[in-house]
Design a protein around this nucleic acid. Structure first.
Lengths: 363, 363
DNA sequence: CTACAGGATGTAATCGTTTACATATACGTA
DNA sequence: TACGTATATGTAAACGATTACATCCTGTAG
């Protein structure tokens, strides 16, 4: 374990003061071209790297961005993290990524931890923006942050996300357009996240607009799919008047539902239609592809970085943006086979239909 | 943006010196119980958090572990990161996660970056352990690290992974046991990663042991699935003697292959069998489930943390461990329908068959 | 009663940078 | 020649913590 090279070593090696070396490293202040070369040569030769710890200590900035996401393994947040990491790298920042495991206490702990690391700002997705101790802590401290995926009703420092309510309402519209009348919803983290709640509310609103009521609401702990199995079995054993279409509040749940239905001998989409939410890769990697709302996860990450950084420079700039989503047609949503008018039973819509929308902040 | 509270503020507030406060914070050195209480109260009241930057600067340790993985969105590495983060948190360490995008230059850059952050050690997955500039850099500096997923032939500071060669050989054995004779392999990152190479070599060895040659080798860029589509179409248009079973060097590829085959009208597993590698969730979330080798990703992460930390304390301890893998039966591998002996065509093996193995280091 | 042990606390150096300020050198101009 | 003005470099004080060492108690043994 070799002792690391410091700025002093470089200075000594070049017969210069540390100040000059520092000026060369940071490219600010006047330094003779010849000297610059000499210093840079020494840096190369000795393999010097400035200590971020010392830099962070002296100057307030650490060029580090704190990141808190609910889960590293959820493809949605993994993509968001990837997008943000990419953008941060482009701008010379290093992201410090922590996961909260959907736990409010860990969420707060993560914030405290990041604050101790003197990150320049924090990008985060909280369970419920309206009731987050972590967020409250940040607001109290006046610490710069930008929410990702959360689109809160109250005023926040910044946010980037999609309009879950509206997207879910459009899903309802699409399902209704296929002639379904008995429609259910499967939600996972319903009680826990504001996103799940918005999707639920939006879906209900969409149905209600057409005068249709939600036939079934299945809530399962997203951790164990066994809950889903039991719930679905119960629903279809119980009555013949069971849903012909389900909206699942995320794709993982949708895929689990499809697998379970197929295990129960129900064909998707011939007998039962399924629509997910998120647009994860696993949904596209099946035939037929999962019909879903695709959220621009990478962009949410990168846009959040940009928003946070503008905030850092110019305090009290725009507080947020809703990004566009996309309804990917896939093949798991089809005309209902119950009320049929002579057309091919359960025929999948074949023209891929997409929907774009984007709106400026209105918080 | 409030100025953060420092140790000095606490000292002043209590009428004590910073030394005493520091002793209370770190719980070392003799302090009167009464004083401890007073200081702790002040810490609570003022909301003090010690600056990691200052701590890292003064003491050599930053309680931070560097992490480099090829991709945040690949479920394998996402799980590894989750496992490692979990374990690190338990031990009071904070992981600093960077992704290399399978790029050797970024890999090296990430190492430099982490070194600048004065992490206490590095956990990483490199493309090719035998030819990694990043690894060489770490070895030269004598910097403590532990590889994850890479199981190199040469001596390294530490590694945790599975025996890809052996696992792939067992896959060959299982496929052969189902009566297949025309067997292909689909590999993605073939040229790029040592894992893909080991899996290829192991699969070949497994086939060879039974006197069978590989019928087809399809290599595709994992980024665009279009390569796969064209390759598979070509293979099955060309001849009737095309493979009845494929081994895919990872699950993402396997799922893409299944989707493509089904789009081509081939049924899996009735007509064609598919076996993947990794055991990702998306493979389990389909009916029938993907037959695959499940690698203990979470454990690889947590074990790597443990190994690295023992190394930090006691230099030159054990250099590595191979963890057990598991062949999950799934339902995409079936008896070949070509040579049939009256049994149900393409019947899926129904008894879930598992295989465990674990071996100590022998590097 | 003195001395000394040992507990509790303070003093100050240090870690590797950045940066305001001081100093030195060179050049053109009055 | 002397002086102002850049331009190039050095000096030294921070940043917030840790920690060896000094100091000041208090109690107890000789």
């Amino acid at each position: 374990m070799v002792k690391p090279v410091t700025i002093k070593d470089i200075a000594q090696h070049c017969g210069l003061s540390v100040a000059t070396v520092s000026r060369v490293v940071n490219g600010k202040g006047a330094v003779r071209a010849e000297t610059v070369e000499k210093v840079e040569a020494a840096i190369q030769a000795l393999g010097y790297r400035p200590s971020m710890a010392a830099r962070a200590l002296k100057s307030a900035s650490s060029m580090t961005l704190g990141v808190i996401i609910p889960s590293l393994t959820n493809p949605v947040f993994a993509e968001t993290a990837a997008g943000l990491q990419q953008r941060a790298r482009e701008l010379g920042y290093t992201p410090l990524i922590l996961s909260s495991d959907y736990d409010d206490a860990l969420e707060l702990g993560a914030v405290e931890n990041l604050l101790a690391y003197q990150v320049d700002g924090i990008l985060l997705t909280v369970n419920d923006a309206a009731a987050s101790a972590a967020l409250q802590r940040l607001d109290e401290a006046g610490f710069p942050y930008c929410l990702m995926h959360n689109v809160p009703r109250h005023r926040v420092a910044g946010y980037i996300g999609v309009d879950n309510f509206r997207a879910a309402a459009e899903v309802a519209e699409r399902i209704l357009a296929q002639g379904h009348t008995r429609i259910g919803m499967i939600s996972g983290e319903f009680i826990r996240t504001d996103r799940a709640r918005d999707r639920h509310a939006g879906f209900l609103a969409g149905l209600k607009y057409a005068g249709v009521a939600l036939a079934q609401l299945v809530q399962v702990d997203p951790v164990n799919a066994t809950g889903l199995q039991q719930a679905l079995t119960a629903v279809y054993e119980q009555s013949e008047e069971s849903p012909t279409a389900w909206f699942c509040s995320n794709d993982l749940l949708a895929l689990a539902a499809i697998a379970q239905l197929e295990r129960m001998g129900k064909r998707v989409p011939d007998e039962i239609s399924i629509v997910g939410f998120d647009g994860i890769q696993a949904g596209a990697l099946r035939a037929p592809a999962l019909t879903s709302i695709r959220t621009p996860n990478l962009e949410i990450g990168s846009a959040a970085v940009d928003l946070l950084l503008t905030q850092l420079n110019d305090t009290s700039s725009g507080t947020g943006r809703k990004l566009g989503y996309q309804l990917v047609a896939g093949g798991t949503l089809a005309e209902t086979s119950v009320i049929r008018d002579g057309s091919t039973p359960g025929k999948t819509q074949d023209t891929p239909f997409q929907l774009f929308n984007e709106s400026k902040d209105d918080a």
